[in-house]
Every structure is written in structure tokens, then in C-alpha cells.
Design a protein around this nucleic acid. Structure first.
Lengths: 259, 259
DNA sequence: TAGTGGTCTAGACCACGGC
DNA sequence: CCGTGGTCTAGACCACTAT
């Protein structure tokens, strides 16, 4: 991906940025100027700039001068994998307490991805209720997380409040626990991948920044049988979020240890 | 990133791969052939191929015909965030029970990254003991995870077994618990980023596949004071691994709920 | 040793943003 | 409306791989 000349120019530019010769927000010289300065073809110079953009140093907007990017904040917002409750209901992230839906949530009926159908316990290809929300701090209105919730249609038929525009106090989780008179149990799976084009646009990240995907399954069990389930899949920039949790000791690793 | 012609050729190739015209392992036509077939310049055709490589469809090795890549497995190996214990000592991943160091582990003294120093409770810029291991299944010898362990020099001085080539039965965790006669507590932070060149080479992934980074801090506390700490940072392909864990109920979210 | 991908130069055209 | 980044063609050279 990188030949001698491209590499040379990219290294020079990267160092110039790291030493503060160009500060965040500054414009970089035009491709023509860079080509002249380093004695290469304009195409080669632009390739170097594009390489820096892929590394996250530079923001590239077509037909605008490349700008030095605000360096990825070393201070990550950490999600703590515990469920809390306040007067509004359950919540999973103390950082997100004052967040709100930045745009109007959407609600519709659609076929979910296979892995979601499997988690919900419905046949693949079958319609489910899908809600989508773009979440962010109530003040800045910046979109930081994309949350999608999936509910089996059978469950919505049994408990119509789940499909309403507003599910009422405490949201769908309170409706589920009220209806079944049993506690929800949540399990999360976390992984990461390249962002889709939609995610790039909504979260304002380049295609090289991975998204962190947290899939949370809410289950209500009765006599060891699953009687209700919901899946929430939240996507966020891996540059801004990390997950934190305590590692649990299994029975085999109990303390004090037996000799 | 993608002009009309590049996009057109890339779309055609992507569809050819998805419809099975080219199967995993097959070679793609040469740049010259593609250029002829689609009536574009060779450079343009190669750009399309490179775009498909970035999306994970094609594996690109310099000076070899591009090969259709084994599609990212939908079946993820899931790490369960619980600590277990067997006759060999603690372990954190039931999938990794039969794994071994694929290459000889390295051991050295070096300055750790700032975030590691902070977690260890050591001043930034100070030397620590660094161990590196490349882990994978004992049979295939494929490297699946890169594990780096950091220990403060003061702790090694106090407990020399920690710095030995072999820390003895149960490894450093057993040495720590024996020495301090107290249980370790582990906390993990998980996030994701683009792979470094070293990680690309060791894990055999392209620069577009994110790596999942799990930073595990082992702490021994006595009377609420930290008396010993170790940090283990494990990096793995986000295409192959996911993390799974139960969400804990905090006191505020206890069940049964009070009205 | 022939052929391949990778890279670089040269020169051209386009669409669009900021002056 | 000029200048910019983005794209494409054309043609050249190189290093390495497969044969």
C-alpha cells in the first residue's frame, strides 16, 4: 500500500503534526504545494495525505483543504457493565444518564439479521418489531450511540404496550417485568467491526474507525423456560468508548483456595 | 475514495464473489485481464481489487494473484468473562484451555505505555517487566492472540519468582496470592482499534480488520489499599472473537423491586 | 525467465466550495 | 470563478513469484 516516496512524505507529514508544526484544526498545504516541497507528483503527495487520514491524523472533506484532526482523546468514556435503576427505570450506563434521543426514534416491522433472530428465539426471516434511536448528550445533540431494539411480534401481541410509541413509565423493561411478574436477566456480547456507511454518517467517523457493537439480550425465565426476550444492539465509535467490568470467580476459582 | 469506474468494477467483482462465480480460495483474474474485460486502465482495475480487499472479500499478497478470502465466519468464538481454575492454575477463557505459546515467550525490561503505567500505579516513563506471548491452539500453531503482561519492578524485586523464566505451578497469579495470602481481583476494560503493523503480521489480518483489546488488571488489596498489581493486555482479531458476560444488578436495581 | 502486483510520473478532466 | 481534491488514462520501472 505504501511505496518509498509515499511513505517518505507521509512520515514527514506525520512528524510535522506530532511535533505541533500543524495543530488540530489547521489546514494542511495543498497537494500542489506538498508535491513541490517534497519533489514528487501531486498524486503521490495526495496518497500520503490519504494514508494519514486512514490513520486518523487528518480529516478529509472533498474539495476542502485537509484539516488536522482533533487527536483521538486518550480519555475514554467507560461503560460500566452493571444495570442501575433510577426514577425513570433501568439504565445501563452512568455516563448516559442525561442522554436523550437526538432525532425522533423510528418504529417499524422488519426482518432482523439472522443472529438477532437466533437470540430472540424466532425463526430466521420472520418479521419482528424494530425500534431505532440515535442517542447523545441532551445539550450538545451529538450522536454518540445508535441503539436498535428488537421484539418478537408474538410478545407485542400479548403485551401491546411494547409496540406503542411510548411504552409508559420505566419503558418496555418495566412492562415485561410487570406482565410476567419475574425479573429480567441481561447478557451482553461485545465485538467490533468496520462501520457501515450509515454508521459513518451518523456517528461522524471515517471508514477506518471501528465501531464497538454491544448486543444485549434481555430474558425472562420461568421454571428454566424462556418466556420473553428482547434484543438491544448498540453501536458506538471505538475511539470514544470502552467497556469495563469485574471478572467473576467461578466455583472452580473460589477463594479461599483448597490445598 | 471511489469514482465511477472504480465503483463499477468493484461492484461487479463483489457480486461475482457473492454469487459464487469465484469461490473462497480462487484466484481473481489479473489486473490486465480485468482492465480488458471492463474497459478501464489497469490501475483503475487494481484500485477496485484493493477496495474489495479493504472490505474483507479478497486477500492481497504482493506479486501474487488476489485470492477470494474465506468469508468472515459468522460463528464467533466467544470469550466468557469469568475466571476458572484447573490443575494448571487460573484461566480466563474456556476456549483457550488447550492453547499454548506458539513462539518462545519474550521477557524484558521496558517503559510501558502511559495507560499501563497508570493502571500499575507506577510513574509514567518508569521501567517495568514486560512479558510477551503469542498464543494459539496447540495443534494448529496459528497465532490467535497476542498477550503482553506488565509487572512493576518493585514487585519483582520483592518476589523474584515473578521475573523468572518459569514462574512455577499456577504461574504468577499463584505466586502473588501465596505471597500476600490474599485473593486477586480482576477487572477488564475492552475496546477496539486499528491494528498496528506488528499485529497485522502476527495475527495475519489486513489493516482494515480491527483488533479487540482486552486490558485485564489484577490487583491484591489489603485493608482497602493496593499492595500488588499486574496488567495483562491481550489483542485479538475482532473477526474471530467476541466477549460475553452477564450484566450485574446493582443495589439500585435489586429484585424484587420495591413499589 | 516471464508475468504479476505495486508504484510513480505526466497530464487531463470534473464537480464543487470558498473567495 | 478560480483552486482544490478526486479520478482516470497512459506509460514506465521494479521486485519478486511461480513456472
Amino acid at each position: 500500500m505504501t511505496g518509498d516516496e509515499t511513505r517518505r512524505v507521509a512520515d514527514a507529514l506525520r512528524q510535522a503534526i506530532e511535533t505541533g508544526e500543524y495543530s488540530p484544526g489547521d489546514k494542511l498545504p495543498t497537494g500542489e504545494k506538498l508535491a513541490e516541497k517534497y519533489g514528487v507528483h501531486r498524486g503521490t503527495a495526495m496518497k500520503s495525505v490519504r494514508a494519514l487520514a486512514a490513520e486518523g491524523y487528518v480529516e478529509l472533506v472533498p474539495r476542502q483543504a485537509p484539516r488536522v484532526r482533533e487527536r483521538p482523546r486518550s480519555r475514554l468514556v467507560v461503560r460500566d457493565r452493571t444495570v442501575y435503576r433510577d426514577e425513570l427505570g433501568y439504565f445501563f450506563d452512568q455516563n448516559a444518564k442525561n442522554w436523550a434521543a437526538v432525532e425522533a426514534p423510528t418504529r417499524g416491522i422488519a426482518v432482523p439479521p439472522d443472529h438477532i433472530a437466533d437470540l430472540l428465539g424466532v425463526p430466521r426471516g420472520q418479521d419482528v418489531l424494530v425500534r431505532e434511536r440515535k442517542m447523545g448528550p441532551a445539550d450538545t445533540k451529538q450522536v454518540l450511540q445508535l441503539a436498535t431494539s428488537y421484539l418478537p411480534m408474538a410478545l407485542v401481541a400479548e403485551l401491546p404496550a411494547l409496540g406503542a410509541e411510548k411504552a409508559g413509565p420505566g419503558g418496555i423493561y418495566d412492562r415485561l417485568e410487570e406482565h410476567f411478574q419475574a425479573p429480567l436477566e441481561w447478557e451482553e456480547t461485545a465485538w467490533s467491526r468496520q462501520p457501515t456507511e450509515e454508521e459513518q454518517a451518523a456517528l461522524k467517523i471515517s471508514k477506518t474507525i471501528p465501531v464497538l457493537v454491544v448486543t444485549r439480550v434481555a430474558q425472562i425465565m420461568r421454571d428454566d423456560a424462556l418466556i420473553g426476550a428482547e434484543v438491544n444492539e448498540t453501536r458506538m465509535s471505538s475511539e470514544r468508548f470502552a467497556l469495563a467490568y469485574r471478572v467473576q470467580r467461578s466455583d472452580s476459582a473460589a477463594w479461599p483456595r483448597q490445598a
